[in-house]
Design a protein around this nucleic acid. Sequence first.
DNA 1: GTTACCGGGTAAATAAAGCAACTCGGTAAC
DNA 2: GTTACCGAGTTGCTTTATTTACCCGGTAAC
Lengths: 204, 204
Amino acid sequence: MTVIESAGLRARKKLRTRDAIADAAISLFLARGFDHVSVSDIAAAAEVSKPTLFRYFPTKEDLVLHRFADHKGEAARVVDSRGPDVPPMTALHRHFRAGLDRFEPVTGLNDHPEVIAFHRLVFATASLTGRLTQYQLDDEAALAAALGSGIAGRLQAAQVVAVQRVLARTNWQKIADGRTAHDVQPEAIADADHAFAQLSHGSI
Amino acid sequence: MTVIESAGLRARKKLRTRDAIADAAISLFLARGFDHVSVSDIAAAAEVSKPTLFRYFPTKEDLVLHRFADHKGEAARVVDSRGPDVPPMTALHRHFRAGLDRFEPVTGLNDHPEVIAFHRLVFATASLTGRLTQYQLDDEAALAAALGSGIAGRLQAAQVVAVQRVLARTNWQKIADGRTAHDVQPEAIADADHAFAQLSHGSI
DNA sequence: GTTACCGGGTAAATAAAGCAACTCGGTAAC
DNA sequence: GTTACCGAGTTGCTTTATTTACCCGGTAAC
């Protein structure tokens, strides 16, 4: 009963196919750039047909962004599953803080070469940042629903997502400038504390 | 245009599945013995379902003997495709001789550890030798047809197959006793010359 | 001597993958 | 400005594989 369920051949092979496609895609994108790799190249490298590739990933962009997609709706889930007597902002703050503690790539606080290259790839490609923004809007909508259906919830959600985006981007920039994640971590935590405190106390 | 045709994803994956099954089977058989491995074990090791396994190999025995099956009808083909003015026995003799020159496993003249272990596995397992005999009978029938439809052809075919079997078995025995293929080769060639000469000149 | 299990082998339904040919927007050639 | 090509994504159709449940013969339990 491990974390990775070995539930049946079919399921296992589907996972493996998905991984093979994603790995081939990322590797080719990093090597040649997003726009200089065709989906046919990826399909060939992953040894699947083109229709199969599109059965797993709806668009070329999703071949890159599925890693972010794994976090889809996470903020909303954090709010929904917070303990009693825990304000939403506190839960979101703790969750982001936990991400920083674990150097999770989504926080921007990660200096593994692959992760850096991956982020550079995303930020350097217009269609990718575009679609990533779309993801964030979806996330924001889900968070708004979790925070309560009203203009207040929608405003708060927008601010939270904006804060997360700026924090992550700031961390990434420092690391892209050559600093280590370990070195940047204290500032990242301070920035997060500052930003979330601002959100909680409305000190704008 | 290599020997291994890369003709399409489907064909390539079929080959790979077949190889995975056969490799898993041989490896398990050598490790635990033919009768102490279930086809379900093999399917699990090869990561395919049991029906899939049986679509590739009609019986458990064929998981081992498909290597011999590759030579199915070879004698008949040799006779059919011999040049003009070449007597059938001469063609068969040359062909067997060529096999010895190349240390082909079918000739028994091969001292690779895997090949030795493989042969031991076959000869030590009743159901395998049984089915192998069946293969040889099929081979004999095909050869008989190639030699001409009559009692004479059938007799000759039987004798050829018998000779090949004895020669191969003799070679294998010497190698099983610890000698090298290179060392045995001259005797093997002499034996083959003797046996085929006997067949040609009818000196029984 | 039934009953229960095990291993080889099969059948029918369904899921997933491959193949080939297509649409559609863009863009380079001429 | 038409023609031709390229790359993203789609559509039917066929092939291959998994699932599940079964048959059958043997054999161990009781």
